[in-house]
């Protein structure tokens, strides 16, 4: 395999490394994974809605501040983006950073044993 043609591995190794570390760190927490589950089920939620669904559907009674911090981690990893509409702030799931994972370790069909 010619690795020099793969920009993810050879051209920008340092920038890529830092971003990927942030993504894995962000995903290494069940609450943050549940937040992504909820956002991928219905995108564009306020902090209030995320707190409500985590409490009522998943029995997670974290403080609003704690959930806000989890959202900050997801946002700095690029997995969540926010947008202001009117005077409220809405959170959206951005799956793009996850493509790095399958880009680096693509799943292959097993054709032979």
């Amino acid at each position: 395999m010619d690795y020099s043609t793969d920009p993810l591995i050879c051209k920008y190794p340092l920038a890529y490394y830092g971003a990927m570390v942030d993504v894995f760190r962000a995903l290494d927490d069940e609450t943050r994974r549940l937040v992504l589950d909820e956002l991928s089920a219905r995108d564009g939620q306020t902090l209030f809605e995320i707190c409500t669904t985590l409490a009522m559907r998943h029995g997670l009674t974290l403080t609003r501040q704690a959930i806000s911090q989890h959202l900050g981690v997801l946002e700095s990893a690029g997995l969540v983006v926010t947008e202001r509409r009117g005077r409220s702030k809405f959170h959206y799931f951005n799956p793009e950073p996850l493509a790095q994972i399958t880009g680096r370790w693509p799943s292959r069909k097993r054709t032979e044993q």
């Binding site: 939620q45 306020t46 902090l47 209030f48 809605e49 609003r64 005077r87 409220s88 702030k89 809405f90």
Partner: peptide
């Protein structure tokens, strides 16, 4: 009210 509105709190 601005702070509550930003976080979507009724």
């Amino acid at each position: 009210r601005d702070a509550l509105m930003e976080d979507g709190i009724p």
